[in-house]
Amino acid sequence: MRIETHALSATAGGRAILTDVTLTIEPGAFTGLIGPNGAGKTTLLRLLAGLAEPAAGRVTFDGRTAAQTGRRALARGIAYLPQSGPVHWPLRTEALVMLGRLPHRGPLGGITAADRAAVERALATADAAHLRGRIVGTLSGGERMRVLLARALATEAPVLLADEPVAALDPGHQLACMALLRDAARRGSGVVAVLHDLTLAARFCDRLILLSGGGALADGPPGRVLTDDHLRAAYGIAVQRGEAGGEPFLLPWHALPSPMPKPETP
């Protein structure tokens, strides 16, 4: 599925969050959505998922609006993983991941062999198969995130939109999760993830969209997006760069006394 936004604007509480954003999410690419806190990353992701109405402009899914596509077709086409997703009841992992199959089930249809197979694949891919019998509330933050990721993967939708999927993970699972998302894109899915770790974003993503000041400050391959100028303008930081095994990496080094409004200090 191809998601296009055209002159998209969004507001929250009377404040403009996004202004005039036009971009296309293609299948087969892993896109990282980066930008400072409050830049509108989650807002954009929710608009791409068809979960919110834009203040102006439009979002289309394979050329059709969300209303034309229909809520159920959209649910089969786009898996959405919310930021630090809540789990309100003490469900077991397996039952939770099975929720990802809801878009495929009829109003009275039971769980089919195809549903079970998809859940098994998702559990294995997210390295969560050994957690299947555990109650979700008893899992560690990282285990819980992988289970929630498995829930999103179980839908087997052509598009996966993930809000900060690696935020709660240890370094080992961060790398595994980024590789997993990249592999999903290699197999033909369109993957968009909100990310804060610039090195991971640079190493694993095919494309980065840097949101800042209500729009896409830069959009393209990581090398072209993560320039000193862009990082100073968006985050107000200077970075240290290096290279390992032919891959570039960068570390946020210090905050710059920039025109950017200072974050409030407690």
């Binding site: 929710r46 959209l74 959405y80 939770l96 809801l102 089930r105």
Partner: peptide, 18 residues
């Protein structure tokens, strides 16, 4: 079904087609 999906919060339930 929708109540099952709501376990994951409103956004996730909405994104699951409810």
């Amino acid at each position: 079904r929708a109540l099952d999906a709501l376990t994951l919060g409103e956004d996730a339930a909405h994104s699951l087609g409810f």
